[in-house]
């Protein structure tokens, strides 16, 4: 990883000093063990503060949405998929961002992760990403084998922990709505209490809103201060979208998102009576 961070720093410095970008978005050392923190570097000499280590967990693609300056961003596999998504959805213009791709620095990695190296980049930092395994969705499949009552109890228990701080939503690069449905108040769809009903409606609706766009980066779950198991919902949607519509989000540009389109022959398992008229 030494070589990797040296390349990142050199390239970042070059981009800043030659005026190709105004800011570099990356990570610097954090204040807690095992945590690196997102940083915005504007001076070439500050590039030595950049780090690329186990603590670099946040999905940085998020920051490009608010960045008005021409930016370089240092990204790993999952961030790059989010970025592809944002480009696909016209939330970013490609010529405003210089992408410095680097192999995922997490040695253990996240369960089920298949894409550790960036799928889109202008410069690729050398270095080998850790091994990836085939995602067999065994967590989703194991959960689905529980009885409906057990599944409901688990889900209610998880969601009852939620304090509605919206860290999950704000950490998610796919959640970029200017006004979220929970903030609508005419009509007020979702109550502001942390009553179970409101929490459930929030989390289910969010899982559906990001279905077909979620890249399973895990940012929502990592951001949650209460340890709510959010990923299981997203991964259920991931599996459905993959099986029904043969689609995986953020792998290539210019593919139509599955929920923006249709096929005349789409299955109709949701119909009363299972689809037969």
């Amino acid at each position: 990883m030494d070589k990797c961070i040296r390349e990142i720093r050199d390239k970042a410095q070059e981009l800043l000093e030659t005026g190709q970008v105004e800011v570099v978005i990356g990570f610097t050392a954090g204040t807690l063990p095992g945590k690196s923190t997102p940083c915005f570097i504007t001076r070439g000499e500050d590039c030595k503060l950049l780090v690329w280590d186990e603590g670099c967990k946040n999905n940085l693609a998020n920051y490009l949405l608010k960045e008005k300056r021409k930016a370089a961003i240092i990204i790993k596999g999952c961030d790059s998929r989010s970025l592809v998504n944002l480009l696909t959805e016209n939330q970013l213009s490609r010529d405003r961002v210089v992408i410095l791709g680097a192999p995922c620095p997490l040695t253990e990695g996240c369960e089920g992760c298949q894409i550790k190296s960036p799928v889109i980049y202008d410069y690729l930092v050398s270095g080998k990403a850790g091994k990836t395994g085939e995602d067999d969705f065994h967590d989703v499949k194991t959960f689905a084998r529980l009885s409906p009552q057990e599944r409901k109890e688990y889900f209610y228990k998880e969601v009852s922990k939620c304090i509605r701080c919206y860290a999950c939503r704000n950490a998610c690069p796919a959640c970029y709505c200017r006004e979220c449905f929970v903030e609508n108040n005419l009509p007020q769809w979702v109550g502001k209490s942390t009553q179970l009903a409101d929490n459930l409606i929030f989390h289910l609706t969010r899982a559906l809103h990001v279905a077909g766009r979620c890249v399973d980066c895990g940012a929502c779950q990592r951001a949650c201060p209460m340890g709510v198991d959010l990923r299981i919902l997203n991964r259920k949607m991931l599996l459905e979208v993959k099986e029904l519509y043969q689609f995986e989000a953020g792998l290539k540009e210019e593919q139509e998102l599955p929920l923006n389109t249709y096929d005349p022959g789409d299955p109709e398992p949701f119909l009363a009576g299972g689809g037969e008229a």
């Binding site: 923190t37 915005f40 701080c165 860290a167 108040n185 007020q188 109550g191 502001k192 951001a223």
Partner: peptide, 28 residues
């Protein structure tokens, strides 16, 4: 002008803060 950039504007800090006391009133 600098320190805010990495903030996600979520409510973790304020909701977990023992002294933060801002509230909203809404009719359901």
């Amino acid at each position: 002008d600098e320190i805010y950039r990495k903030c996600l504007n979520c409510g973790v800090c304020t909701y977990l803060c023992p002294t933060c006391h801002c509230f909203d009133i809404s009719d359901e």
